[in-house]
Design a protein around this nucleic acid. Structure first.
Lengths: 220, 220
DNA sequence: ATTATTGTTGATTGACGAGTCAATAAACTT
DNA sequence: AAGTTTATTGACTCGTCAATCAACAATAAT
């Protein structure tokens, strides 16, 4: 009893099921049949709509990136001033919608996918570039080396995510602590800002590279 | 013409080949036959020595962790004072031996493996715990919140690694820039230390949690 | 010499899974 | 009513691959 206009519904269900299945398995080694079953249809139908497993993964990835982007945009719009926007952006990165076991695990696996599939790599780079641009934009008035601090924040967000993927699952039903995770990153931001203020008082803000005068190991 | 005492040689060759193959493929989807071929033997022999593919992966992971551990221990022994040891540890994490495309990619994949294989998870946790302990030990005399800063450094190291795995490969034969990577992490350390000094001058070092007084978002 | 022990591989098995296809059915079009 | 498009699936093909096995070779032990 086929109703028409099923396509978008089926696609959405498959995308959701893909994320759930990859997240639960903790691996990209999930069969199309598994995904399809979770989404309530036959594997043949999944192939019918997506053509291949790879396309399913990519659609799932796009979906995650889209959700993330929307959440960030919302946070940016709601926030006041550079500092507020930075805080908002970082908090949004660990919001309840994004920072969930399944999704975290899916992220990790998509990183792996990006090693193999060019389109996945492209998507991830779009995300990284946009994040970097957002951060630099608001860091410029606040710190001496916006690019460097932005890179640090970006790396740290990824690092906190990846570590959560490995964290021992708490008591059943417990949820990753996005607040605490964001605080780790915010501590970094705060430290680098304090440094800028302290530095400008001493007149050496313009150094800008990541290595301070006390460091004797000879960088740069 | 079988010589005796081949076992350790074969095992080492297989471990090396596993890392190379996983690194090059950017995925755990490598066949035992590929690995064995690279190591110069038949797939049957690989199974003979390791019993299963999973055991091969685990051996490779142990090997990477061992190398890393040795490098860190060396750096710690050679360094002077807490600050020097911290710098040494961080630099060692990005030394030429560890911070190579293959190995970076293998790390990423081992993170994924740890999602599925309990023994892999255990290994990675040993590494994380030891790193945390090392960091805390030397941070204690330097900052107000050694645990928090150590967590930040750990996350950042992982983040920098994972990002390098995705970085566009430079011109052929080029090698990831471990110096620059370490500098990103060192900048974080320096900032948090500066903050501690600044803080103690103002008498509020003991706060210790990751959120500053200027932050209006209401954490903790 | 004969009997382990260790090293080594080609061939085979057995399972699994992506993708295709033919067939069925309900809706829309003319 | 006949034809077209959309939805849907069971069955099948085809390839791949981990793991096993039987057999062979060389060295060591008795």
């Amino acid at each position: 009893m086929p109703k028409l206009g099923m396509e978008p519904i089926r696609r959405a269900a498959l995308v959701k099921a893909t994320i759930a299945e990859v997240g639960q398995a903790g691996s990209l080694d999930v069969t199309v049949a598994q995904i399809a079953r979770r989404a309530g249809m036959s594997s043949a139908l999944a192939h019918h709509y997506f053509g291949s497993k790879e396309q399913m993964f990519l659609a799932a990835m796009r979906h995650i990136l889209t959700l993330y982007g929307a959440e960030v945009r919302g946070a940016l719009a709601a926030a006041e001033g550079p500092r507020g926007r930075l805080t908002g952006l970082i908090r949004a990165s660990f919001s309840a919608g994004n920072f969930r076991r399944e999704v975290i695990s899916a992220w990790l696996n998509f990183y792996v996918l990006a090693q193999t599939v060019p389109e996945a790599k492209r998507l991830l780079r779009v995300y990284q570039t946009r994040l970097q641009a957002n951060l630099v934009h608001d860091l410029r008035p606040l710190v001496a080396d916006p690019g460097g601090v932005a890179r640090g924040i970006g790396a740290m967000i990824d690092g906190v995510y990846i570590r959560e993927a490995l964290a021992p699952a708490g008591p059943a039903g417990s949820v990753p602590d996005g607040r605490a995770a964001a605080d780790v990153v915010l501590a970094y931001l705060r430290a680098r800002m304090a440094e800028a203020i302290q530095g400008s008082a001493r007149g050496d803000v313009a150094r800008g590279d990541g290595v301070g005068p006390r460091d004797v190991t000879g960088e740069q």
